[in-house]
Simulated scan of single mutants.
Amino acid sequence: MSASFASALDAAREAAAAQHYPQGALYVVATPIGNLADITLRALHVLQMADTVACEDTRHTQALLRAYGIDKGSAQCLAVHQHNEAEAAQNVVLRLQQGQRVAYVSDAGTPGVSDPGARLVAAVQAAGLRAVPLPGASSVTTALSVAGAVAHGSEHGGFVFAGFLPTKNAERATAIAQQLAPEPRCVVLLEAPHRIGELAQALAVLGERPVTLARELTKQFEEVTTQPAHALQAWLEGSPQRSRGEFVVLLHPVAVTTDDGESLRVLRLLVQELPLKTAVRLAADITGAPRNQLYNTALAWKREDGAGDEPGDSDA
């Protein structure tokens, strides 16, 4: 154990021990996403108290617990990950029915968001048992807090969590064109370092739309930058370090035109007669309105009308 956490364990017992922690309950515990100090006192107390710690990776979690001075034997750690979650959930349910307190942690952050845990919680609730949340670190909310990308006080406020996009190029391009481009709200994506270059290249079709890349959050080499979508690949290639670490990618809200101006009138007429890509290009040339803004507006119209995107529309 790091000596710096000895007082934290004492503080956790003093601050959290007086609360009620029912037996036969699953405690869903958020853990740090990089910086070990980002652990809550209540999380430390529950991890000490738990009869079983269910976790995405037992070796990773045992190392984390040892860093805090919490000793759990191999029999007290149970692997629950994406490949065995349904089967392992029944093991957890059995332990809960025996009156155990089970804490569940993913490798980092809040379980059940982009990490395993949702099926486990669903199985526990289906068995009539209780799941208790212990909030804490999350890469999603951490990145959102410093990106300035969530619009408030408008019809397009809030954000959409999309997680990981498909890994195949064609499927990823389709998701961007049909789901992300017309979405006016902030969109949150996650990406691994070995695929961030491919994602940046695919997002270039969004043109000037601001995109925030947040890498190595809470760690020593944390970096957060906001670039136009078309410039992401060049920024990544500016330094070998920039493609390392896990990424949170935030597409900023789209400025959707809602007035009855000349650009919308022209666009509406052209869209009725021409393919979307051609209509957008001509409307931008005629009126001087931003092409990306017109493109996203036209896509929104098509979605409202129940029509799908046309082949090649993502090239606008």
Results as ranks from 00 to 15, higher is better:
R303L: 13
Q179M: 07
A231Q: 12
L36K: 06
A214T: 05
V92N: 02
G73N: 01
Y295C: 13
A8Q: 15
L251S: 02
T142L: 15
E304T: 11
I196M: 03
L213E: 04
L299M: 14
R185C: 06
T257F: 03
H81Y: 11
N84F: 01
T212W: 03
Y68M: 07
V160W: 09
V124F: 08
R244Q: 15
L189N: 07
L64A: 00
F159A: 12
V249L: 12
V254K: 13
A137F: 01
P275E: 11
E304A: 15
L65E: 06
T110S: 11
L274H: 12
V254G: 14
G34I: 04
G157E: 13
A137S: 11
L96E: 01
I286N: 03
G163P: 02
V93A: 05
G306P: 09
G197W: 04
A173P: 00
I176S: 01
R42H: 05
A54V: 07
V146A: 12
A300G: 14
T226N: 02
P290A: 13
W235H: 13
H60E: 11
T226W: 00
E223P: 01
Q178D: 15
L236Q: 06
V80M: 03
L199I: 02
Q179N: 11
H252S: 02
A25S: 14
V93Q: 02
Q233A: 10
E171Y: 01
E208K: 08
K302S: 12
V187Y: 04
A204W: 05
T31I: 14
Q90D: 12
R185N: 04
A17F: 01
N292W: 01
L41K: 03
L269G: 14
V224T: 12
G112H: 03
P166L: 01
D315I: 00
T257E: 15
A50P: 00
T225D: 09
A15P: 01
E216K: 06
M1K: 14
Q98N: 03
T52N: 07
L276S: 10
N91H: 09
D71T: 15
L96W: 00
D38W: 03
E262I: 09
S74V: 12
N84L: 00
P240H: 07
E14L: 14
E222G: 10
H83T: 10
A63E: 13
D38E: 10
R172A: 01
V266D: 12
A17E: 09
T142P: 08
G117C: 05
N296I: 00
V132P: 04
D259H: 08
A127W: 10
T278M: 12
A16C: 15
G136D: 08
P290Q: 13
D107Q: 05
C55A: 12
A108I: 00
P32R: 08
K302G: 02
V280N: 07
